[in-house]
Design a protein around this nucleic acid. Structure first.
Length: 424
RNA sequence: GGAGGGGUGGCUGAGUGGUCGAAAGCACCGGUCUUGAAAACCGACGAGUCGUAAGGCUCCCAGGGUUCGAAUCCCUGCCCCUCCGCCA
């Protein structure tokens, strides 16, 4: 959520910045609601003030043993007026709230202009796509050839966009998870977190998935409530600081968590239907940092390096791109994507996304820290990034480490996690 | 699942219908003292929001209700603790 003060002071400027994000901010509608809100609020608060004052004097009169009947008669119809004013104010406030909750975060100045991923800007490349003296197979074909990767059985168990892995393939998948967690905890100073995979609505509002993107979530009814399967560990992990005031000396908070992620991908039918690029359920190792605002931009740069480290250790070629305005997520002020080389597709594909959400989530979360300089609670900045998407990393390993005779070599760094197995 | 007890400011904790946004203590901050520190003493000290300002308003888990007036009474829900039962 944006700072309503800033929006109020200069809605045109906000609208202008959001154009970059391909979002039309309804300035006229906002101004109209804002004016209504102001009037209604002033009226309501005046009435409340009157009620409070009169009630107090009734209390005094009663304590002094005076007759309070005439005073009671005076306040007779105050209640009705107040109820009416309140309900009017509530209606307006909730309209305004709905509007504001649907407004994305402002993009940072450094975010490139553009509408689609075609306008993303490449920042750097690492490694060289392997020269293969044969036609590389994609991971689906490799899975069929080697066994252990089975989409048909998964479709029987559940439906499309799920996978069953068995044997060495399943182990390789698990090895990747352990490897990633170990790197992030021992080399980059993250604290490992285990978190719930089902969360409540407040948590999803806090990180910005709700109210706007409910159709991408799997809902789980529970009694008369509604839980949701997490679409990313960002949700439970970032929400750990919801409604908290964090001591300055505890910052930055750095968490990493391995969780499954569940996405209904309502808007993506037809995209990447083959293989495990886009699944309803996938594993991810997530990095989250909760930082004091002055450091969040530096933190963004180090976090993308933390994600890159994994690919470097796996010797997988990749490139880093800065997302253009139109491709930025709802809550992100700036995002770097990490794209790994996939020989089977002959192109780079997203494997990680690292974002600075600035104070956008923190405001919704009421996640604050006490600034020693001011002594006051102030909003934190939140960042998150994949480190990395496990399924897609598995795909990258399979495709990049395939041999002409159909074997798959286990990357060196994973061998210890494979119990010494060196190929599939 | 059964039976009880609770949820109050950064923390501990008092408050059971009216000058209570809330005692007290701790922590934090400013000061006195000190070579410096500690101790002691003095002072300040919840958050959010509206308003140009003066000054309001809201918030004692959440949502309803009673009342002129609710932290306090009633209802519902959530969460925590203790005991019993069951259980991966």
């Amino acid at each position: 959520m944006l700072d309503s003060k800033i929006v109020r002071e200069n809605p045109e400027a906000v609208a202008e910045q959001l154009v970059k994000k391909n979002y039309i901010f309804p300035v006229a509608r906002f101004n109209e609601l804002e004016a209504l809100r102001r009037d209604a609020q002033i009226l309501t608060e005046n009435l409340q003030n009157e009620r409070n004052t009169r009630s107090k004097s009734i209390g005094k009169a009663k304590a002094a043993g005076e007759d309070i009947q005439p005073l009671l008669a005076e306040v007779e119809n105050l209640g009705g007026q107040l109820d009416e004013a309140k309900s009017k104010l509530n209606d307006i406030a909730s309209d305004l709230d709905d509007l504001l909750l649907g407004v994305p975060n402002l993009p940072d100045e450094s975010v490139p202009a553009g509408l689609s991923e075609d306008d993303n800007v490449e920042i750097r490349r690492w490694g060289t796509p392997p020269e293969m003296a044969f036609d590389p197979l994609d991971h689906v074909a490799l899975g069929e050839q080697n066994g252990g990767l089975d989409f048909e059985t998964a479709a029987k168990l559940t439906g499309s966009r799920f996978a069953v892995m068995t044997g060495k393939m399943a182990r390789l998948h698990r090895a990747l998870i352990q490897f990633m967690l170990d790197v992030q905890t021992t080399e980059h100073g993250y604290t490992e977190a285990y978190v719930p995979y089902l969360v409540n609505e407040d948590s999803l509002k806090g990180t910005g998935q709700l109210p706007k993107f409910g159709e991408d979530l799997f809902k789980v009814p529970f009694g008369d409530r509604q839980y949701y399967l997490i679409p990313t560990a960002e949700v439970p992990v970032t929400n750990m600081v919801r409604d908290e005031i964090v001591d300055a000396d505890k910052l930055p908070l750095k968490f990493t968590a391995h969780t499954p992620c569940f996405r209904s991908e309502a808007g993506a039918s037809g995209k990447d239907t083959r293989g495990m690029i886009r699944q309803h359920q996938f594993e991810k190792v997530e990095m989250v940092q909760i930082v004091e605002p002055s450091t969040s931009w530096d933190t963004l740069e180090t976090m993308i390096l933390h994600a890159e480290t994994i690919l470097q250790k796996l010797k997988l070629p990749y490139r880093v791109v800065a997302l253009c305005g139109g491709d930025l997520g709802f809550g992100a002020a700036k995002t770097y994507d990490l794209e790994v080389w996939l020989p089977g597709q002959d192109k780079y594909r997203e494997i990680s996304s690292v974002s600075n959400m600035t104070d956008f989530q923190a405001r919704r979360l009421k996640a604050r820290w006490r600034n020693p300089e001011t002594g006051k609670p102030e909003l934190l900045h939140t960042l998150n990034g994949s480190g990395l998407a496990v399924g897609r990393t598995l795909v990258a390993v399979l495709e990049n480490y395939q041999t002409a005779d159909g074997r798959i070599i286990v990357p060196d760094v994973l061998v210890p996690y494979m119990g010494g197995i060196t190929e599939l």
